[in-house]
């Protein structure tokens, strides 16, 4: 179909509307005299130097740790659970799958008060348990994605492996997992991004300032008495970059992978 000029014009306006707010972030990160205003920058890389040291790096490291724990907690139980739901005789399986789908829609952030109370009572107000909680948060969607991927793997492959006297565990790890890797990778990336971006959960559940994650650092900088505009912008760019790269990786390797954003972020 030939492009329609009116459609092109409208889309150009929408593109501009999406672009306009982003412009400040890029400009301020490079501007020696940055403020909230969008002005012609006096170029400097000082902000990027400032935010790749000390506490900034520590908070990025904490975010990485949190996201990795969450990913492992969602993906490993997810693989075995999905295999059971896909292949084994589980009572009430259909009901369980509906429950899993249902849980992908329940935002965990709104249950923050009871979780805080439980974690406070158990002395778990720190990074690692918070990562485990965020992993459980992503688990329903991970189960759903991995089971869908495993359902598409032909059973003959694992039956052949079992004939060769491979154990069930070996068969899952060496046959089923490689065959359903796209689904598992989507689940892993989703869990990682979900924990990486989460704000309210670590705000409430992580009490030690040395375990602060990236989003809380940015929030603290916005609320500070002396706002360091350029530093916030530069740090936000560095903090957001891994998420963008992971999304692109996902979109490139698995077509339709973008839809994995289909579960609710915490």
């Amino acid at each position: 179909m030939r492009p329609h000029p009116l459609a092109t014009a409208l889309l150009a306006v929408i593109a501009l509307l999406f672009f306009a707010p982003m412009l400040w972030l890029a400009v301020a990160s490079l501007d020696a005299h940055a403020s909230w205003a969008l002005t012609w920058p006096s170029l400097t890389l000082a902000h990027f130097r400032n935010v790749t040291a000390g506490d900034y790096l520590l908070s990025l490291w904490n975010t990485t740790l949190l996201a990795l724990v969450a990913t492992i907690v969602a993906v490993l139980p997810g693989i075995f659970g999905a295999y059971a739901l896909s292949r084994r005789r589980i009572p009430l399986r259909d009901g369980l799958m509906i429950t899993v789908l249902f849980l992908t829609g329940i935002p965990v952030g709104i249950m923050i008060i009871p979780v805080f109370q439980i974690f406070a009572a158990c002395g778990w107000l720190s990074l690692l348990p918070t990562g485990i909680f965020l992993g459980a948060n992503s688990l329903p969607f991970a189960l759903w994605l991995i089971k869908t991927a495993m359902d598409a793997v032909p059973r003959e492959m694992e039956e052949a492996a079992l004939m060769e006297r491979a154990s069930l565990l070996q068969t899952i790890i060496h046959v089923v997992v490689p065959a359903s890797l796209p689904g598992i990778a989507s689940a892993a990336i989703f869990s990682f991004i979900n924990a990486w971006g989460s704000f309210i959960v670590p705000l409430v559940l992580v009490s030690d300032p040395d375990q602060q994650t990236g989003p809380l650092t940015i929030y603290g900088l916005i609320a500070a008495a002396n706002v360091r505009y350029g530093d916030i912008a530069a740090f936000s760019i560095i903090y957001s970059l891994p998420v963008v790269i992971l999304y692109l990786l996902l979109a490139r390797s698995f077509s339709g992978g973008f839809l994995m954003g289909g579960a609710v972020k915490g």
Binding site: L25, W36, W196, F199, I218, Y239
Partner: peptide, 23 residues
């Protein structure tokens, strides 16, 4: 890209965009 950005980055971008002196 706007969808991919973490919530705190989107919030910062929109705070800067819509506060006094912003774009």
């Amino acid at each position: 890209l706007a969808w991919m950005l973490p919530p705190v980055t989107a919030a910062l971008i929109w705070y800067a965009f819509s506060t006094t002196g912003g774009t």
